[in-house]
């Protein structure tokens, strides 16, 4: 919330400065900003709807029970798949992960979940595609998925994390 307000403050200061320097250019900037927003709005609304649906199917309780009870290589894989398709905000995800660790979940699946949650965005693919094209979008997400597992495995071997 605070960072949002900072963002607004920066935008408004920029806008005022720009307006004082050049009215015509400022008008142009507003038009450009508005146009690119309208242009991408369908993709944004699509992912918002997808997020709502995915979050209500894979809600925090279900995610907890899925990750908390999983183990072995399938546990790691399913945790990172859940991380990849859900889009849980950090302020819910981190305490959830902490809670699971306290209840005895392994560090590797938890780290895989947290990493893929951050790096992989299956739900946001429609938006990413519009800007980056299909190929690079799939490549980036696939690599991010693989490396979130790599990171988790390395973290599992770090004794100081427990």
């Amino acid at each position: 919330m605070v960072s949002n307000l900072i963002l607004y403050a920066v935008a408004i200061i920029f806008l005022i400065y720009s307006y004082l320097k050049d009215k015509k250019k400022t008008k142009q900037a507003l038009t450009k900003g508005y146009k690119s927003f309208i242009n991408i709005l369908p993709e944004f609304l699509t992912i918002i709807l997808l997020i709502g649906m995915v979050l209500s199917i894979l809600n925090p309780q279900i995610v907890s029970s899925l990750i908390g009870t999983s183990s072995g290589i399938w546990g790691i894989l399913s945790s990172s798949i859940i991380g990849a398709i859900t889009l849980i905000p950090g302020f819910i995800a981190f305490p959830l992960a902490k809670n699971l660790l306290d209840y005895g979940a392994g560090i590797v699946p938890i780290a895989a979940f947290v990493s893929s949650l951050m790096m992989v965005g299956v739900v946001t693919i429609p938006l990413e595609k519009k800007y980056f094209g299909s190929k690079l979008t799939y490549i980036r997400n696939a690599l991010a998925f693989v490396f979130s597992i790599v990171i988790a495995l390395v973290m599992g071997a770090m004794p100081w994390i427990y």
Binding site: L7, L15, K25, T26, K32, F37
Partner: peptide, 16 residues
């Protein structure tokens, strides 16, 4: 709530 200031800043960056 989040997007308007981002697109405003982007518009200004584009011009300036």
């Amino acid at each position: 709530f989040l997007l308007p200031p981002i697109f405003l800043i982007l518009g200004l960056l584009d011009v300036w």
